[in-house]
Simulated scan of single mutants.
Amino acid sequence: MNEALTNYLDNHRRTIQVELTKYIHELSIPEQLKESMLYSIDAGGKRLRPILLFASYETYASDFSKVLSSAVALEMIHTYSLIHDDLPAMDNDDFRRGMPTNHKAFDEATAILAGDALLTYSFEIISNDSNLEAEQKVELIKMLANTSGPSGMVGGQILDMQAELNPVSLEELENIHALKTGELVRFAVYAGAYLGNASKDKLQALNDFAYYLGLIFQVQDDILDVTGDSAKIGKSVGSDENNQKSTFPKLLGLDGAIEQKNNYVKKAKNALILADAENSYLMMLTDHFSQRDH
Rank of each mutant, 00 (worst) to 15 (best):
H288M: 13
A105E: 12
T101Q: 02
A73L: 04
S69T: 07
K235V: 10
I112C: 12
E58A: 06
V168Y: 00
N128F: 02
S122W: 03
T120G: 04
D129Y: 04
A205I: 07
G115N: 13
L195T: 07
L87G: 06
K232S: 10
A43I: 06
I16F: 04
A193G: 02
D225V: 05
N11Q: 15
K104A: 06
N243S: 04
N263V: 12
S246H: 01
D129L: 01
I216D: 13
L33I: 13
S70G: 14
Q291I: 12
H103D: 08
V219L: 14
S56A: 11
A43Y: 10
V237L: 01
L144T: 03
T59W: 02
S239P: 04
Y8K: 07
A205R: 06
E31C: 01
F217K: 13
L53N: 01
A257L: 10
S230L: 12
Y80E: 02
Q17G: 03
E139R: 14
N262T: 08
G115I: 08
L48G: 13
L173P: 03
L5G: 04
S239Q: 15
E19V: 05
R186S: 15
V154T: 04
K245E: 01
L68C: 00
L144Q: 11
M37D: 01
N197C: 11
L179T: 00
V185S: 03
E75F: 01
L144I: 11
T227Y: 04
Y212M: 13
E31R: 11
D63H: 14
A178I: 06
I158P: 05
S65H: 13
S236K: 15
L33Y: 10
E259L: 14
A193C: 00
Y57F: 15
G256I: 09
D276E: 10
V185P: 05
P167E: 12
L213R: 10
A191C: 12
E172K: 11
G155S: 02
L9F: 11
N2D: 12
V72N: 00
S290T: 09
L251M: 08
M283R: 11
K180G: 09
I51F: 03
A61G: 06
E171Y: 08
E35V: 09
D287E: 15
Y281Q: 09
V189P: 05
R14S: 11
P88F: 02
N146D: 13
